[in-house]
Design a protein around this nucleic acid. Structure first.
Lengths: 123, 123
DNA sequence: CAGCATCCATATCGATACTG
DNA sequence: CAGTATCGATATGGATGCTG
Protein backbone atom coordinates (compact mmCIF):
# COMPACT_ATOMS: atom_id res chain seq x y z
CA UNK A 1 0.00 0.00 0.00
CA UNK A 2 1.22 3.43 -0.88
CA UNK A 3 1.25 5.20 2.44
CA UNK A 4 -1.23 8.00 2.76
CA UNK A 5 -2.30 7.71 -0.83
CA UNK A 6 -5.99 8.39 -0.81
CA UNK A 7 -6.44 7.47 -4.42
CA UNK A 8 -8.77 4.55 -3.94
CA UNK A 9 -12.10 6.21 -3.39
CA UNK A 10 -13.77 2.91 -2.60
CA UNK A 11 -12.10 2.94 0.80
CA UNK A 12 -13.21 5.42 3.41
CA UNK A 13 -10.72 7.79 5.00
CA UNK A 14 -11.41 6.22 8.33
CA UNK A 15 -10.51 2.76 7.09
CA UNK A 16 -7.34 4.04 5.47
CA UNK A 17 -6.28 5.76 8.63
CA UNK A 18 -6.80 2.59 10.57
CA UNK A 19 -4.48 0.85 8.14
CA UNK A 20 -1.85 3.57 8.41
CA UNK A 21 0.92 2.13 10.59
CA UNK A 22 1.64 5.47 12.22
CA UNK A 23 -1.96 6.08 13.18
CA UNK A 24 -2.33 2.56 14.47
CA UNK A 25 0.72 2.98 16.66
CA UNK A 26 -0.48 6.31 17.93
CA UNK A 27 -3.84 4.90 18.89
CA UNK A 28 -2.27 2.03 20.80
CA UNK A 29 -0.05 4.26 22.92
CA UNK A 30 -2.46 7.15 23.26
CA UNK A 31 -3.21 6.64 26.95
CA UNK A 32 -1.79 9.00 29.51
CA UNK A 33 0.42 6.36 31.16
CA UNK A 34 0.92 3.71 28.52
CA UNK A 35 4.37 4.66 27.36
CA UNK A 36 5.73 4.86 30.87
CA UNK A 37 4.07 1.56 31.74
CA UNK A 38 5.64 -0.09 28.72
CA UNK A 39 8.99 1.31 29.70
CA UNK A 40 8.75 -0.08 33.22
CA UNK A 41 7.71 -3.46 31.86
CA UNK A 42 10.71 -3.36 29.54
CA UNK A 43 12.99 -2.99 32.56
CA UNK A 44 11.96 -6.24 34.25
CA UNK A 45 10.86 -9.72 33.28
CA UNK A 46 7.69 -9.44 35.29
CA UNK A 47 6.24 -7.02 37.75
CA UNK A 48 3.39 -7.20 40.20
CA UNK A 49 0.49 -4.83 40.01
CA UNK A 50 1.32 -3.24 43.34
CA UNK A 51 4.99 -2.81 42.43
CA UNK A 52 4.07 -1.16 39.16
CA UNK A 53 1.70 1.12 41.02
CA UNK A 54 4.54 2.29 43.25
CA UNK A 55 6.69 3.09 40.26
CA UNK A 56 4.04 5.39 38.87
CA UNK A 57 3.56 8.22 41.34
CA UNK A 58 0.35 10.07 40.67
CA UNK A 59 -1.60 7.26 39.06
CA UNK A 60 -4.55 5.66 40.80
CA UNK A 61 -5.32 1.96 40.96
CA UNK A 62 -8.35 2.30 38.75
CA UNK A 63 -6.48 4.10 36.03
CA UNK A 64 -3.55 1.71 36.10
CA UNK A 65 -5.95 -1.19 35.73
CA UNK A 66 -7.66 0.42 32.77
CA UNK A 67 -4.44 1.27 30.98
CA UNK A 68 -3.15 -2.25 31.51
CA UNK A 69 -6.40 -3.77 30.26
CA UNK A 70 -6.15 -1.77 27.07
CA UNK A 71 -2.53 -2.75 26.54
CA UNK A 72 -3.57 -6.32 27.17
CA UNK A 73 -6.32 -6.06 24.60
CA UNK A 74 -3.84 -4.76 22.07
CA UNK A 75 -1.61 -7.67 23.05
CA UNK A 76 1.40 -5.66 24.12
CA UNK A 77 1.08 -6.84 27.69
CA UNK A 78 0.59 -10.24 29.24
CA UNK A 79 -1.30 -10.66 32.48
CA UNK A 80 -0.49 -13.66 34.64
CA UNK A 81 -2.93 -14.34 37.44
CA UNK A 82 -1.85 -16.58 40.30
CA UNK A 83 -4.81 -18.08 42.05
CA UNK A 84 -3.66 -17.47 45.58
CA UNK A 85 -4.95 -15.54 48.55
CA UNK A 86 -4.25 -12.70 48.64
CA UNK A 87 -4.26 -12.36 44.86
CA UNK A 88 -1.04 -12.02 42.94
CA UNK A 89 -0.91 -10.74 39.41
CA UNK A 90 2.18 -10.21 37.32
CA UNK A 91 2.51 -8.20 34.16
CA UNK A 92 5.05 -8.60 31.41
CA UNK A 93 5.60 -7.63 27.80
CA UNK A 94 4.38 -9.96 25.09
CA UNK A 95 6.47 -10.55 22.00
CA UNK A 96 4.63 -7.71 20.31
CA UNK A 97 5.33 -5.61 23.38
CA UNK A 98 9.07 -6.40 23.20
CA UNK A 99 9.02 -5.22 19.62
CA UNK A 100 7.89 -1.85 20.86
CA UNK A 101 11.11 -1.25 22.79
CA UNK A 102 12.90 0.36 19.80
CA UNK A 103 10.14 2.95 19.67
CA UNK A 104 10.65 3.70 23.35
CA UNK A 105 14.38 3.97 22.72
CA UNK A 106 13.90 6.40 19.84
CA UNK A 107 11.51 8.49 21.92
CA UNK A 108 13.98 8.57 24.75
CA UNK A 109 16.81 9.72 22.52
CA UNK A 110 14.68 12.48 21.09
CA UNK A 111 13.36 13.50 24.48
CA UNK A 112 16.87 13.91 25.82
CA UNK A 113 17.88 16.10 22.92
CA UNK A 114 14.74 18.13 23.42
CA UNK A 115 15.42 18.64 27.11
CA UNK A 116 19.05 19.52 26.52
CA UNK A 117 18.07 22.12 23.98
CA UNK A 118 15.58 23.65 26.39
CA UNK A 119 18.22 23.87 29.09
CA UNK A 120 20.74 25.46 26.74
CA UNK A 121 18.30 28.14 25.75
CA UNK A 122 17.73 29.08 29.37
CA UNK A 123 21.43 29.68 29.93
CA UNK B 1 20.01 11.58 36.05
CA UNK B 2 18.96 8.06 36.81
CA UNK B 3 15.82 7.63 34.80
CA UNK B 4 12.72 7.10 36.84
CA UNK B 5 14.65 7.01 40.04
CA UNK B 6 12.51 8.81 42.55
CA UNK B 7 15.19 8.82 45.20
CA UNK B 8 15.57 12.54 45.53
CA UNK B 9 12.63 13.53 47.67
CA UNK B 10 13.41 17.20 47.27
CA UNK B 11 12.04 17.03 43.73
CA UNK B 12 8.33 16.66 43.14
CA UNK B 13 7.02 13.80 41.05
CA UNK B 14 5.66 16.30 38.63
CA UNK B 15 9.02 17.90 38.07
CA UNK B 16 10.68 14.54 37.63
CA UNK B 17 8.12 13.50 35.08
CA UNK B 18 8.71 16.66 33.18
CA UNK B 19 12.36 15.80 33.06
CA UNK B 20 11.72 12.23 31.96
CA UNK B 21 12.57 12.08 28.25
CA UNK B 22 9.80 9.62 27.49
CA UNK B 23 7.13 11.70 29.14
CA UNK B 24 8.40 14.84 27.48
CA UNK B 25 8.22 13.19 24.10
CA UNK B 26 4.78 11.85 24.76
CA UNK B 27 3.49 15.25 25.73
CA UNK B 28 4.86 16.85 22.60
CA UNK B 29 3.20 14.39 20.26
CA UNK B 30 0.01 13.93 22.24
CA UNK B 31 -2.28 15.74 19.81
CA UNK B 32 -4.69 13.79 17.68
CA UNK B 33 -3.00 14.74 14.38
CA UNK B 34 0.55 15.65 15.34
CA UNK B 35 2.28 12.47 14.34
CA UNK B 36 0.66 12.39 10.95
CA UNK B 37 1.43 16.07 10.45
CA UNK B 38 5.07 15.48 11.30
CA UNK B 39 5.15 12.59 8.86
CA UNK B 40 3.76 14.72 6.05
CA UNK B 41 6.25 17.45 6.80
CA UNK B 42 9.02 14.88 6.70
CA UNK B 43 8.00 13.96 3.17
CA UNK B 44 8.54 17.43 1.69
CA UNK B 45 10.82 20.38 2.19
CA UNK B 46 7.93 22.74 2.70
CA UNK B 47 4.21 22.54 2.39
CA UNK B 48 1.48 25.13 2.25
CA UNK B 49 -1.28 25.19 4.80
CA UNK B 50 -3.93 24.39 2.23
CA UNK B 51 -1.92 21.51 0.79
CA UNK B 52 -1.42 20.02 4.22
CA UNK B 53 -5.11 20.36 4.89
CA UNK B 54 -5.89 18.32 1.80
CA UNK B 55 -3.55 15.58 2.92
CA UNK B 56 -5.41 15.21 6.17
CA UNK B 57 -8.95 14.13 5.39
CA UNK B 58 -11.22 14.63 8.34
CA UNK B 59 -9.36 17.46 9.99
CA UNK B 60 -10.81 20.96 10.09
CA UNK B 61 -8.92 24.17 9.46
CA UNK B 62 -9.19 25.26 13.04
CA UNK B 63 -7.78 22.03 14.39
CA UNK B 64 -4.93 21.95 11.92
CA UNK B 65 -4.00 25.47 12.90
CA UNK B 66 -4.02 24.60 16.58
CA UNK B 67 -1.92 21.48 16.16
CA UNK B 68 0.58 23.38 14.04
CA UNK B 69 0.78 26.18 16.57
CA UNK B 70 1.58 23.73 19.31
CA UNK B 71 4.24 22.01 17.23
CA UNK B 72 5.63 25.43 16.47
CA UNK B 73 5.73 26.30 20.14
CA UNK B 74 7.65 23.12 20.83
CA UNK B 75 9.94 24.08 17.98
CA UNK B 76 9.44 21.01 15.85
CA UNK B 77 7.84 23.01 13.09
CA UNK B 78 8.81 26.22 11.34
CA UNK B 79 6.19 28.58 9.99
CA UNK B 80 7.15 30.81 7.11
CA UNK B 81 4.74 33.59 6.32
CA UNK B 82 4.92 35.30 2.94
CA UNK B 83 3.39 38.72 3.07
CA UNK B 84 1.41 38.50 -0.12
CA UNK B 85 -2.24 38.70 -1.06
CA UNK B 86 -3.77 36.20 -0.85
CA UNK B 87 -1.69 35.00 2.09
CA UNK B 88 0.79 32.19 1.66
CA UNK B 89 2.20 30.22 4.57
CA UNK B 90 4.59 27.32 4.36
CA UNK B 91 5.39 24.82 7.05
CA UNK B 92 8.53 22.77 7.43
CA UNK B 93 10.40 20.76 10.02
CA UNK B 94 12.97 22.51 12.18
CA UNK B 95 16.20 20.78 13.03
CA UNK B 96 14.58 19.45 16.17
CA UNK B 97 11.71 18.29 14.01
CA UNK B 98 14.06 16.46 11.66
CA UNK B 99 15.50 14.67 14.64
CA UNK B 100 12.08 13.27 15.30
CA UNK B 101 12.03 11.30 12.05
CA UNK B 102 13.69 8.22 13.59
CA UNK B 103 10.83 8.03 16.07
CA UNK B 104 8.34 8.13 13.22
CA UNK B 105 10.30 5.42 11.47
CA UNK B 106 10.31 3.20 14.54
CA UNK B 107 6.59 3.74 15.01
CA UNK B 108 5.95 2.86 11.42
CA UNK B 109 7.92 -0.37 11.66
CA UNK B 110 6.06 -1.40 14.75
CA UNK B 111 2.70 -0.40 13.31
CA UNK B 112 3.27 -2.57 10.27
CA UNK B 113 4.14 -5.57 12.38
CA UNK B 114 1.08 -4.92 14.48
CA UNK B 115 -1.20 -4.76 11.45
CA UNK B 116 0.31 -7.85 9.90
CA UNK B 117 -0.22 -9.78 13.09
CA UNK B 118 -3.84 -8.69 13.25
CA UNK B 119 -4.40 -9.82 9.68
CA UNK B 120 -2.76 -13.18 10.32
CA UNK B 121 -5.00 -13.84 13.25
CA UNK B 122 -8.09 -13.19 11.17
CA UNK B 123 -7.08 -15.87 8.66
C1' DC C 1 -3.85 -7.66 46.83
C1' DA C 2 -5.89 -6.50 42.83
C1' DG C 3 -9.26 -5.34 41.14
C1' DC C 4 -14.39 -3.18 39.48
C1' DA C 5 -18.29 0.31 39.24
C1' DT C 6 -19.51 4.81 39.41
C1' DC C 7 -19.39 9.51 38.97
C1' DC C 8 -17.45 14.06 38.18
C1' DA C 9 -14.04 17.28 36.18
C1' DT C 10 -11.58 18.74 32.48
C1' DA C 11 -9.18 18.74 28.19
C1' DT C 12 -9.42 18.13 23.59
C1' DC C 13 -11.75 17.77 19.57
C1' DG C 14 -14.54 19.40 16.08
C1' DA C 15 -18.14 22.37 13.76
C1' DT C 16 -19.38 26.81 12.51
C1' DA C 17 -19.23 31.55 11.46
C1' DC C 18 -16.44 35.45 10.70
C1' DT C 19 -11.99 38.18 8.92
C1' DG C 20 -7.59 40.62 7.00
C1' DC D 1 -5.66 31.81 1.59
C1' DA D 2 -4.95 31.26 6.10
C1' DG D 3 -6.32 32.04 9.61
C1' DT D 4 -9.28 33.48 14.59
C1' DA D 5 -13.08 33.04 17.97
C1' DT D 6 -16.55 30.62 20.01
C1' DC D 7 -19.14 26.97 21.67
C1' DG D 8 -20.98 22.34 22.21
C1' DA D 9 -19.94 17.30 22.23
C1' DT D 10 -17.25 13.64 23.75
C1' DA D 11 -13.53 11.10 25.53
C1' DT D 12 -10.30 10.51 29.07
C1' DG D 13 -8.60 10.95 33.38
C1' DG D 14 -8.97 10.69 38.15
C1' DA D 15 -11.19 10.13 42.90
C1' DT D 16 -13.81 7.23 45.72
C1' DG D 17 -16.02 3.35 47.71
C1' DC D 18 -16.90 -1.51 47.51
C1' DT D 19 -15.38 -6.65 46.89
C1' DG D 20 -13.52 -11.67 46.34
Amino acid sequence: MARFSYQDESVSDETLQQICPLTVTQNVIAGRWKIVILWHLSQTEMIRFSALLKKLPGISKGILTRQLRELEEDELVHREVYKVVPPKVEYSLTEQGQKFIPVLAAMQVWGKEFINKKIEIKK
